[in-house]
Simulated scan of single mutants.
Amino acid sequence: MIQRNKLSIAKLFTQTTAIVILLLLSFALGYYSRPSPPHLLQISQETTTPAAAASVSRIANLPTQLENFRVTTHCSTSPVPPHLVFPTILDRVFNGSSPFTKFPPRHLRSSLKQKRVKGWGSNGAVFENLIKRVKPRVIVEVGTFLGASALHMVNVTRKLGLQTQILCLDDFRGWPGFRDRFKDINMINGDVQLLAQFMQNVVYFNASGSVLPVPFSTGSGLEKLCEWGITADLIEIDAGHDFISAWGDINRAYRILKPGGVIFGHDYFTAADNRGVRRAVNLFAELNNLKIHTDGQHWVLATS
């Protein structure tokens, strides 16, 4: 009996050992056969200090990291002349007629304020400084909300005697929960009336001849402007404030900036520090060999 028990225990031990060995072999084969990360391959070719290895890894892996954020839209090689920018938008977006015609419609009149203008940093000196410097024929504003900065730029261009057209690119949806702060912005059948209120503000200030909404997301809107050949002398970026949104907007907007033009934006100095807009601006400037200037909360990148 004792001998039989010993044999059973030995048999069980042998089977368990075999299973453990097989599992270890499978794990080892899987581990050593997996593709090595590119930055590990780069560093393993030579002996480096930890600091140098981190630097090499960052530089070697940067193109791969940014590849997911590359903008590949094919842009028109025939820029639209400034005097044809508004007609082009009217034709491609509004079926050839102005959205301000007979605005506001009867069913919206009771839901709109006579004027409701709100913005952040919308009257800063940077606007007049850059408009005086660039004397833009076409301005593209990326992120508009209720039009405070756009209407301020209208006043500046009028004061300077400029014939400037301003395209306001925004989906006019706000952000989740924005009505907690703006309870007076009405909603009809789930549609917040930001676009309608923006247009009402434009009409109130008699600016419908100078300002035109382009009511799409910033990404899709900028890509279409590029495809249609619409370029700008001055571009303001003030839409999403996270890194990915700001990075995408800056890259797409830069493609429609005329040579010698200026691209600028808000929220360079915020609580997000180097995790949001500032990080995107700094990285873009570094990769494109541009110098960053600041004016209050605004950042400025000039191409000349």
Rank of each mutant, 00 (worst) to 15 (best):
L84S: 11
I43W: 02
G229S: 08
H298V: 04
N282H: 02
G209Q: 15
P215H: 02
L41A: 15
D91T: 13
G209L: 15
P82D: 06
L257P: 09
F13K: 02
I256V: 13
T48S: 13
H152K: 03
A125E: 08
E286N: 14
T77L: 14
M199Q: 02
Q163I: 14
D273R: 10
L160T: 10
L257D: 14
A271G: 05
R70Q: 09
F13H: 03
G221L: 03
L160Y: 09
D184N: 11
D295P: 00
H74W: 10
T294F: 07
L146A: 11
N288G: 09
F243C: 02
K224G: 10
E67I: 11
I235G: 00
D180P: 03
V93Y: 01
L160S: 13
G161M: 12
L130H: 01
Q45C: 10
S208L: 00
K258A: 04
T88G: 07
N201E: 08
N68Q: 10
E286Q: 14
T270K: 05
P79N: 04
E227R: 08
L162M: 11
C226H: 01
K224H: 12
G221W: 00
G209E: 15
H107M: 07
F205E: 10
Y32C: 09
S26W: 07
M153A: 02
A125D: 07
K183R: 11
V138I: 14
K102N: 14
N201G: 09
M199K: 01
F27S: 04
A10H: 07
G121Y: 01
L257M: 15
S57H: 07
A148C: 08
V202R: 01
V140T: 03
S304A: 15
I139Q: 03
V134Y: 06
V277Y: 02
F284D: 05
G276W: 00
G174H: 06
V85H: 01
I131L: 11
N201C: 12
N155A: 15
P63G: 14
L84F: 07
G143H: 01
P35N: 13
L108V: 13
R133T: 04
L234R: 01
G240M: 06
S304H: 14
N186W: 04
L23F: 08
A196N: 02
G124P: 03
Y32L: 11
